[in-house]
Amino acid sequence: MSAHTTEKTTVDVKSSVVRLRGVSKSFGDKRVLDGIDLDIAPGEFVALLGPSGTGKTTLLRLLSGLQLPDAGTVLVPPVRTVVYQEPRLVQARRVLANVTLGQRGKAAREPGLAALAEVGLADKARAWPATLSGGEAQRVALARALVRQPQLLLLDEPFAALDALTRLQMQELVADLCARHRPAVLLVTHDVDEALLLADRVVVLRGGGFALDRRIDVPRPRDRDDPAVTAHRKDYLSALGVTPRRPPLEHR
């Protein structure tokens, strides 16, 4: 297997957990998604990049059933969970109750505590959400999403509001947890490096369709300065419309 790219990944259709066919969605005159096809294999980690306002969140909302497509079909597995940019915890319930939200009875308690332990917050089970730091709250949100053992985990810029250091820790945590639980993941992010660090496959959404869709065959754990990783970076940046700045002449 080469450490390089396979353009236009094709997944065996019968073995995918997400299947989008010809999905379109418009808001007013603006066609945000224009006949999109997407397949995600079980356990596959897909990162979705795209300039602001291109419809990444819209795509996630279609997958979680919060919005209906104007055309096309959306097929998803039965157990899906979402982590949003903000933690979205119920302020009036304790941390553990937030993690086991919607699950009844004492049986939910143990897995809830285990999930909290996995994100390193075992001692916060009885805390109130308002007393958590931003990173802690986001970890609770992650525990809440994982405790259901989803077949599809949707992450909408879950690290965007965190500081750089916490973000690095969270990225490691997510990589770790996903490697252990192996849900299919769709991670929306603005950060090319984050995408290249975490994902099996990185997709760029632009102008209503996918501008770039590549498998990243670099073994894990990955190093962000690994030449095999940085080789992709330029392509993704240009697919996102970021042209490298010309070096100032006087310094050359």
Partner: peptide, 17 residues
């Protein structure tokens, strides 16, 4: 060639308003 059981796919239940 890991064998994985594929769950039955379905259209997501509409949760919006």
């Amino acid at each position: 060639t890991t064998v994985r059981t594929i769950p039955d796919l379905a259209v997501p239940e509409f949760l919006g308003v």
